[in-house]
Design a binder for these strands. Structure first.
Lengths: 249, 249
DNA sequence: CGGAAAGTTGACGCGGGTCAAGGAATGTGG
DNA sequence: CCACATTCCTTGACCCGCGTCAACTTTCCG
């Protein structure tokens, strides 16, 4: 079975940055063909990651950024007393590994939640490329800056919002992110467990479960295990009104 | 009075990046004299900001980073329903304005808590300079990346820690940041109000007040309004054991 | 001196955490 | 194919940390 998978996937990953449908979310935004070729050369395309496989771990020497082409990742860090804090989820077209650029090692870990294909971009090569492509430099800054505002939106959520508002904001964030890559914004599958959701939102798993039940009871959602159907986008939106950064959370 | 202040301060701000004692915290880290001169040329040195004066506001077109030379800033954003979320405090040697690089406008506001002298560094000039100084480019990425890991440490704090642990972590963060710029790590003055602390840590102002009283009662601190003396660094540390990113919060 | 802003302290109640028990889906070996 | 275990999720009962409300004190500043 692994052998067969290889064959299939070697084909499917033979894609250049130019062909990738995620361009406007990923780094090459606004590049011309020639520049894209250069970027294309430094990107390493791995065979697909298995579910539960680490992309990198906290403390690993950091050498690359990773762009998700398909699948989903969970970023987290672990405290000394052993428990885990989920920092975020990465969907196709999004980038992880930014937190490794400060001191040579990743500050967090990143693990796949489902089978994923991922592009690796070594820092050094990116840096060199930035020297010749000012546009890339700016785009990288934009990505990093976006990450900061996203995290800050999350701070607001955790500091000021009720459990209900947090879950609503979380669902709307997923919805809009799926929509922006051409998928349905009403219907989608959660790639992560209740455990992960609760951890991420600073809530007990039981609270998450109760809220899903409550949302369903009030006609906001239809929930079946990990399948979500948003029935009343309006009211869901009104619950998080005033929350900044609904973009990615 | 404003006139007099002007005179005093024109003298005190006549300093080049080379002379600045904050070099290893600020951008010029590891630059040679010639490179420093170039950076020096693009830095705009303002006359001191008055307490309560905005450095920039959310929504303003973003053009520059700002390095704090003395004083202290508060960064915050405002929700649609009017309330404020404090995102962080900026001490001398630290930089704000990173969240403006993503889409041409600042996502947060920054205001002085006390009289402050601040260096302004326009993005464009920095970008140009990065083309000729690869070291600066890397250093900027490091600063931005650091900001991300800091915010993520804060997410952990808000998501998983009790009120007690949050305040302890906050005080230790201030302590180590003051120490790293040559001040006492035991004794310092809080530049911010209880209001700001509570807002930042996701706590009610009354809770903050009670915790200060409790810490004092147990011999951890001496608190007198905004003057803090840390009496038992050991035990304070043991309260936040396991929290990541105690560096800046 | 008066009025406002900042900080402290006590009483009370609720949101959501914790504990416990019980489904439902998926995997595993016989 | 079925017993059985395991993981994930749900639901109920209880209770505690911290937010809310309110009264008071202290400091600040004209």
């Amino acid at each position: 079975m692994p052998a067969k998978q290889h064959k299939i996937n070697i084909d499917s990953i033979k894609v250049s940055c130019g062909d990738c449908s995620l361009t406007d979310l990923c780094l090459p935004h606004g590049m011309n063909g020639q520049d894209m070729d250069k970027l294309d050369k430094i990107v390493r395309r791995h065979q697909p990651y298995q579910p539960g496989q680490h992309v990198y771990r906290a403390g690993d020497p950091s050498r690359s950024l990773f762009a998700v082409r398909s699948g989903a990742l969970k970023s987290y860090c672990t405290t000394q007393d052993g428990d885990e804090q989920v920092l975020g989820f990465t969907l196709p077209g999004e980038i992880v590994g930014l937190d490794g650029m400060s001191d040579g090692a990743y500050a967090s870990s990143s693990i796949t939640l489902e089978t994923a294909s991922i592009c690796e971009m070594p820092y050094e090569a990116l840096e060199d490329l930035c020297q010749s492509l000012p546009g890339l430099n700016r785009q990288m800054m934009r990505v990093v800056s976006k990450e900061i505002t996203t995290d800050q939106g999350m701070l607001l959520l955790l500091g000021k919002r009720t459990a209900e508002e947090r879950l609503a904001a979380f669902l709307l964030s997923l919805s809009s992110r799926y929509e922006s890559r051409g998928l349905s914004r009403q219907t989608f599958n959660l790639p992560m467990s209740r455990q992960d959701i609760g951890n991420y939102l600073g809530l007990a798993i039981e609270t998450v479960s109760r809220l899903f039940a409550s949302f369903q009871k009030h006609g906001l959602l239809s929930v079946n295990r990990r399948e979500i159907i948003i029935l009343d986008m309006q009211r869901l939106n009104s619950m998080v009104e005033g929350c900044a950064g609904s973009s990615k959370l």
